[in-house]
Amino acid sequence: MITVENLRKSYGELQILKGISTQISHQEVVVLIGPSGSGKSTFLRCLNGLEKTTNGKIEIAGMELTNPETNIHDLRQHVGMCFQQFNLFKHLTIMENITIGPMKVLKKSKAESEQIARELLKKVGLQNKEQDYPDQLSGGQQQRVAIARALAMKPKVMLFDEPTSALNPEMVGEVLNVMSDLAHEGMTMVIVTHEMGFAREVGDRVLFLDDGYLVEEGTPVEIFERPKEERTKNFLAKVL
């Protein structure tokens, strides 16, 4: 589903990603962990072209993202993303937040888009919030709407960048539950998170990033219980 070959990213002289290669298969749930500033967000944002790669090759769902001839907007329809700060469209209602993609990008009718939105709102447990504005919702609710907004495009892959980091602790669970459901339905997911319990439970594979290198990857059991690399051990000692 996703192939990353020798991905490099620099800001001017500053190298952020220093040659990352990995493959993510259909329906796989991959969790990205690593210290702050290690390049997790940058890596994720390269996967939907929000950051331009400096070097290397990324292929998603048969489309080569790093090929300048690929239409990036078409590709992004297939790659959903959820942000740490939710980024719901402030001036639109919850319903409009979800329908704007299907209507304006996929050119579906209003009725059909609203139908999709209602089903998704039901799925994330917010069917009675259609006419509210984002700032009337709690953080956890906003993040669930953001997930619904991404799903409305029927993506093949979902990217999550610390989706629960900006939430009060009591709201973390409701968002993680929606994400687990999604994983169980077979969505291909790449998740940056500090929720190690969730990573262990839902992840098929864990990637440990440090200083722009993919230091170690393996199943949750391999990474959390038998890490091979010194850097992985040090990091886990701090966070577990």
């Binding site: 939907n48 929000l50 907007h73 078409d74 992004r76 329809q77 790659v79 959903g80 993303m81 942000f83 700060q85 980024n87 719901l88 469209f89 402030k90 704007i100 993609g101 304006k104 990008v105 953001a146 907004r149 991404a150 409305a152 495009m153």
Partner: peptide, 21 residues
């Protein structure tokens, strides 16, 4: 907010659609 534009881009909106809507 830059996040608004990024969210629009992430659902496949073009620069024009993002600006307009």
């Amino acid at each position: 907010d830059r996040g608004q534009k990024e969210a629009a881009a992430s659902i496949g909106m073009t620069e024009f659609l993002t600006m307009r809507y």
